[in-house]
């Protein structure tokens, strides 16, 4: 019994090591393939700003939409925020948002401080809707096509390079497909 106790640390190490080895082949920023090309999940969320529109499944479709998942407590969200501001300023881009596991008041204060690039914001207080979307962490950004299907996801903060190389080409392709 006592000996077993002394062997416990090495067992724990082997288990963690096994997870690490498996983790090397996983891409933490990869989309679970299950959500790609699937329709937007069924959901309806209240609005962040009183008096404005919330966010629901019906808001997707018709034309391509971009969805950004953010939270005021998330450091990387701040890093990517100016980039989303710039994206949203383009006439051809419309960004919707999920306020993820965040106090609505804190979200509002955060947006008041940094600027609000979002057309509509849904409050996902307990993160349930985000689970349906397959959100892994904040920030995340999704591209949804005109048919309301999720086409692409980026995990982690957007950078100028990601926007130029990953987001915009796909976005433009989605728009062309819609015309």
């Amino acid at each position: 019994m006592n000996r077993l106790l002394f062997a416990l640390p090495v067992l724990v190490l082997l288990i963690i090591g096994g997870f690490f080895y498996r983790g090397l082949d996983l891409d933490p920023s990869a989309v679970p393939s299950a959500m790609i090309d699937r329709p937007v999940p069924d959901f309806a969320l209240p609005a962040l700003h009183p008096g404005k529109k919330g966010l629901s499944t019906a808001d997707f479709g018709g034309q391509p939409k971009m969805l950004n998942v953010f939270a005021s407590w998330c450091g990387p969200c701040r890093v990517e925020h100016p980039i989303i501001m710039r994206l949203a300023a383009r006439a051809d881009v419309e960004v919707l948002a999920l306020s993820y596991k965040d106090d609505p008041q804190a979200s509002r204060a955060w947006l008041a401080e940094l600027g609000d690039p979002y057309r509509q914001i849904g409050v996902d207080r307990d993160g349930r809707v985000a689970i349906d979307w397959g959100v892994y962490g904040v920030p995340e950004t999704y591209l949804v096509d005109a048919g309301g299907r999720i086409r692409y996801r980026h995990v982690g903060p957007l950078t100028a390079a990601v926007v130029a190389e990953e987001i915009l080409p796909r976005w433009q392709a989605l728009q062309q497909a819609n015309q």
Binding site: P82, M85, R86, A88, A89, R90, A91, V93, E94, V95, L111, L114, G115, D116, P117, Y118, R119
Partner: peptide
Amino acid sequence: ELLNRGQTAGSA
């Protein structure tokens, strides 16, 4: 310009 666009999102 980085921040003001928020209030007028989409309007270049």
